[in-house]
Amino acid sequence: MVRLPGLGLLVRSRTGHGAARGTAGLEPAMFVHGLGGSSQNWSALMASLDDTVEGRALDLPGFGHSPPPDNGDYSIAAHARAVIRLLEAEGRGPVHLFGNSLGGAVTVKVAAARPDLVRTLTLISPALPELPPQTSALPTALASVPGMAALYVRVTRDWPPERRTEALLSLCYGDPSVVGGPERAAAATEYQRRIDLPYFWDVMIRSTRGIVNAYTLSGQHSLWRQAERVLAPTLLVYGVRDRLVSVRMARRASRAFRDSRLLTIPGGGHVAMMEHPYLVERAFRDLRDEISARARGGAAGSTVTATADMSTAASGS
């Protein structure tokens, strides 16, 4: 638990092969989860990259095991400030910065505001403004409407944790069947723990409002304008079967970021780092190799957009 003024953040790190031999020579990385998620969402990807980066993942304020912030601010900007403060406190920058969904929007703001802290940016289904949103995402957005969360609680009060977890997996995964029995049981236990927290719904509602409010910002504060300001080489990952962030936004994103490459996963959903960690790992390693080759060659940065049809690889992962 990292204590900062007005803020407490749970930060997880790997204790696998990378940690066993020491982290000397490994480049630092930070992983930022999405709405309703936690640092545990990155476990599979962090494990596969622990020979390459010294990875840490945080629970955003009010999520996972991090307590709510003292000021009760759950806006995208507030989450971004929390990440920046953590990076400054740890002195690990510049880092390879990863973000999923809400965490994607947060890390875009971090990279735009503090390019000195970001080595590369990997965005998995980032919550960038999509108006109108696809219909399957509307129920999530409605959580920001006063009274809707209370109505949902009343309607689902008799649901067992397993049913709640199944609904969540169906929303986030392109193919929920990839989650095995033990993983489902662990997810149900963790979901119930979070729902029992007295501040759970307040955090969810305020964070959802933060996303909705960010969608309405214009001018220099627009998330798309922020994306244009990002200097770091950027990897964009989208799932064709994503029910929360439409793959149709992938092309716009690849044009917005000045130095981007794009991976689309035909069978993927909203959490590719959990559903297809091998594909995300491989794409990130390709990004690192590209940046290393560019540095050796002294070449200037350029926009690189590559759409990869990974259907064969996905079926084998």
Rank of each mutant, 00 (worst) to 15 (best):
A20Q: 11
F63V: 08
L128R: 05
V53A: 07
A272L: 14
L142K: 00
P129I: 08
P61N: 11
G103L: 03
D286L: 06
D59T: 12
A293E: 12
P61F: 06
E130F: 01
D70C: 04
P94D: 11
H96C: 09
G8M: 07
V212S: 03
M274A: 15
E281T: 15
S48N: 09
R193N: 09
S246E: 08
G297S: 14
E54F: 02
G269Y: 06
S260V: 06
D116S: 13
P198V: 06
A149R: 02
L231T: 13
M310Y: 01
A314K: 01
G297N: 09
V304W: 07
L10K: 10
R14E: 14
G104I: 03
I205P: 01
W224V: 09
L131M: 07
G268I: 02
M30E: 03
D158Q: 10
Y238R: 02
S246R: 05
R296V: 07
P133A: 13
V245W: 00
N213R: 13
D289L: 09
G210L: 05
G18H: 00
G22D: 02
Q192A: 15
M274N: 13
A44V: 03
L10H: 15
L287Q: 04
G64V: 10
P5D: 15
V153S: 12
P198Y: 02
V145N: 06
S39N: 11
T307V: 10
T216W: 02
A57Q: 09
Y199L: 05
G93L: 02
V11T: 10
D73M: 04
L49N: 01
I291E: 15
V280S: 08
